[in-house]
Design a protein around this nucleic acid. Structure first.
Lengths: 143, 143
DNA sequence: CTTGCACTTGAGAATAGTTATCATATAAGA
DNA sequence: TCTTATATGATAACTATTCTCAAGTGCAAG
């Protein structure tokens, strides 16, 4: 239950926070911007402020409930932290995001950090490319 | 000579652009923000506008003369594009940046992209950790 | 050399994304 | 139920960057 997640994080259980978590749940791994979350909730008839969305997302991130990614371009995107770590590949044409995990790369990163005298704490790996989704390829031909 | 780089890129050879390239050259691989470049030039007695710095950096990037990184936190940093591709590891305490290149990771990325149906065009890999520089460790103990 | 003009420049306004402020509202332990 | 630390929404403020525009300048053609 989401309310338990909130309590564990030392956050009060409030309507805006629950709605946001539900939405992220329903989004099933899609990567949403703060703005998108705000609009979706408004469209669903919820009363919520953009500031609250940003605030809550920051708190969720601190609590390890969501992850923030920056990819290329302005806005940050958020996704629910379900399961283990993974990296991303983003289509430079349609923005589609796929996730992957590679043990070889993970191991290699740790040993590189160690060799350079760093105690590794985190990393971001994002690949960019052209995806082979039909809808995306069509768009490219037209333009 | 830098002026040739500019001509090759289809850019006119102007004082501000040359000064910026010289500065980046002297920075020897340090990663500078647009703001830092601007201030350094002002301090050196050059007359230049911040808008010009941003404009030129964008043009240099398009021409492949410099690379733009986002790391964590607000401002982008720039470095001269000398030699082959490399990735970065950043100290989360002092911000020190080291560079590395790992053929195993590079290969692995390409095959992952292919497997997922992407034609890979680019990637960013940044590790974050605590560095073992004496100056950095001291600061941590004090605070 | 001059000259013409497309390209540049600097200053400041404008924008995008995000965070801070503040008065009001509310969750939840006593 | 009371109390109070937290949370909320509206809006102002802020940061990084880009845009606008009038004035200036590199450079190719004469």
């Amino acid at each position: 239950m989401e309310s338990q997640d909130l309590r564990n994080a030392g956050l009060k259980v409030t309507a805006p926070r629950l709605k946001m978590l539900e939405l992220l749940e329903k989004a099933e791994g899609r990567h949403l911007t703060a703005e998108a979350i705000y609009r979706l909730l408004l469209d669903a008839g919820e009363e919520i402020g953009l500031a609250t969305v940003y605030r809550a997302l920051t708190q969720f991130e601190a609590a390890g409930l969501v992850t923030r990614h920056h990819f290329e371009g302005g806005q940050a995107v958020f996704e629910l932290e379900r399961g283990p770590h993974h990296d991303h590949i983003v289509c430079i044409h349609c923005g589609r995001v796929e996730e992957f995990y590679d043990e070889v790369i993970e191991k290699r990163q740790r040993s590189i950090a160690e060799k350079l005298g760093f105690n590794m704490r985190d990393h971001t790996l994002t690949l960019y490319g052209e995806c082979n989704a039909p809808s995306c390829m069509n768009k490219r031909i037209k333009s």
